[in-house]
Design a protein around this nucleic acid. Structure first.
Length: 469
RNA sequence: GGCCUCGUCGUCUAGUGGUCUAGGACAUUAGCUUCUCAGGCUAAGAACACGGGUUCGAAUCCCGUCGAGGUCACCA
């Protein structure tokens, strides 16, 4: 049975797109083998905890269709799935490590550690704990018994080769001489990531640890921990990090990174986001660009994941979303648009939105584009700002011609306008542009005749009159 | 700086020693379709980081150089 997991920490606004990419692979790998996909919240950093982040992360994950089999929300047989609720477990295992001689107590103050590292760096040495407390364990234990604060550190063996056998990168070799005596249990009784993941991944029977490449350098520590406990190693797979256009790791400082930005602010479809993210570091065997999550699960394989770190390109994401929009049924698209604007507390007339769908379906790339194209259906355009400096003396003729139309249909309107252009000797494009400006207030708009039909004769004539002033 | 990873068009990628005059997609440019913008169709330009090997033959294997990234916390 294959069991995968993602372990987000609720220290940001929402689910990070990089986390979605990781979640997607974990999800696909589990589902491909009819296994389970688990979400465990790693909320052990009490200082960086963001209120409401956990809820938003879980909600966003569900929105993009990566639904966990086990999580803090739905529970499961290996809970709790929130690390802050498992403190006793970590403490027990940390103690076990000390008892077995793989860990030790440390009462060094942050100030001392800071100074120590500073000195080491000044001497161009690698910053590493100097094991002061390991040398005086008895004394340290006495002080702890008197109530002194302490941490538990991993006792890293000397000069030993650790091989990480990675599903994506192959065998990666490290030497323990480069590895610091990692703090495992913090002085507030919370575990650090390193203790937390290993204990939980073991207890939760995770078979494949698929995570970002940023964790590769700390994997030997985790292996040391597995060995110290005498536990079987899971498979490791370190996937490349998504990058900013400047090639650094994708970060909120340089780019929008939250799921909610793409989903709610831009109006990208969850399926499109997933589809796009699937293309990061992987490609469909038939070189397809557009495919469903189900299809992805079917054809996906870990061995096909590429090692190079891709740049997250919003332009292609938008193109792909446009493809999804064009594939969406009109009624569904209408509802999505209605929903999208409702979130912003803008309530659009559903029947009017419905009429505009055929006009904009091929034009918008994301839901937030709708307003750009269709605002004029709902509000009178501000034509004051538009100084049309071309000859518009025939605006009156247009008005009169339109006024005569009984059967107010796009086809009829178009025909009459072309006839009129011929009659007064102006180019079709000029006449239509002037009309467009008067009706929509913009140089770019959905097809004019159809738009005018939707708007209605009365409203169109009103706008023309207004435009003449 | 130490350790680790990576290096094919601007971007995402195909490619696992000969089928590569390096394929596809996005983007760009041009043409057609047209009342604008889209969409659709057609076309064009655009890459194997560099230097050595190995081999009859290398984008593909080996070494080096360079470049990029990650990581070195009581953050994850």
């Amino acid at each position: 049975m294959i069991r995968t997991r993602i372990a987000p920490s609720p220290t940001g606004e929402d689910l990070h797109v990089g986390s979605i990419a990781t979640a997607l692979i974990n999800y696909a790998w589990a589902k491909k083998h009819h296994g389970q996909f688990i979400v465990r919240i790693e909320d052990t950093d009490r200082k960086r905890l963001v209120k409401g982040a956990e809820e938003r992360i879980l909600k966003s994950l569900n929105r993009v269709g990566l639904i966990p089999d086990e999580s803090p929300l739905v529970g499961g047989p290996y809970g709790p799935y929130r690390q802050s609720e498992r403190l006793a477990i970590y403490q027990k295992y940390a103690q076990e490590l000390v008892d077995k001689g793989h860990g030790y107590y440390c009462i060094c103050t942050p100030e001392r550690l800071f100074q120590m590292r500073k000195d080491q760096q000044a001497k161009k040495q690698i910053p590493k704990y100097d094991r002061l407390c390991l040398k005086n364990q008895e004394e340290v234990i006495k002080k702890i018994k008197k109530g002194e604060k302490y941490v538990i550190r991993l006792k890293v063996p000397d000069n030993q080769e650790i091989i990480v056998d990675d599903l994506i990168r192959g065998k990666v070799r490290f030497n323990t001489k480069d590895i610091d005596d990692q703090v495992l249990l913090k002085s507030d009784g919370f575990p650090t990531y390193h203790l937390g993941v290993v204990v939980d991944d073991h207890l939760m029977k995770i078979t494949h640890v698929i995570r970002g490449e940023e964790w590769l350098p700390s994997t030997p520590k985790h292996i040391l921990l597995y060995q110290a406990f005498g536990w079987e190693l899971p498979f490791f797979a370190h996937i490349s990090l998504l990058r900013n256009p400047d090639k650094s790791k994708l970060s909120k400082r340089k780019n929008p990174v939250w799921a909610s930005y793409y989903l709610d602010k831009l109006g990208i479809f969850p399926e499109a986001l997933i589809n796009y993210l699937a293309l990061m570091g992987w490609s469909h065997p038939e070189e397809k660009d557009v495919f469903s999550l189900e299809e992805y699960i079917r054809v996906f394989h870990i061995k096909d994941i590429q090692k190079t770190a891709p740049i997250f390109d919003p332009v292609k994401l938008e193109w792909l979303n446009g493809v999804y929009i064009r594939k969406t049924e009109d009624i569904k698209l209408k509802n999505k648009i209605l929903e999208f604007y409702q979130k912003e507390n803008i309530h659009l007339d559903p029947s009017l939105v419905e009429k505009t769908i055929p006009l904009i379906k091929e034009r918008i790339k994301k839901l937030s584009d709708y307003w750009e194209y269709c605002q004029f259906f709902f509000e009178k355009p501000n034509t004051q700002e538009l100084s049309f400096n071309k000859d518009n003396s025939y605006i009156k003729e247009i008005y009169q011609e339109l006024e005569k139309i009984i059967d107010w249909k796009a086809g009829v309107i178009g025909e009459r306008m072309i006839q009129l252009a011929k009659k007064i000797g102006v180019k079709n494009s000029d006449l239509f542009m002037m009309l467009r400006l008067a009706i929509t207030g913009k140089k770019i708009s959905p097809p004019l005749n159809e738009s005018m039909e939707i708007l209605g004769k009365e409203e169109c004539l009103k706008r023309l009159k207004n435009y003449q002033k």
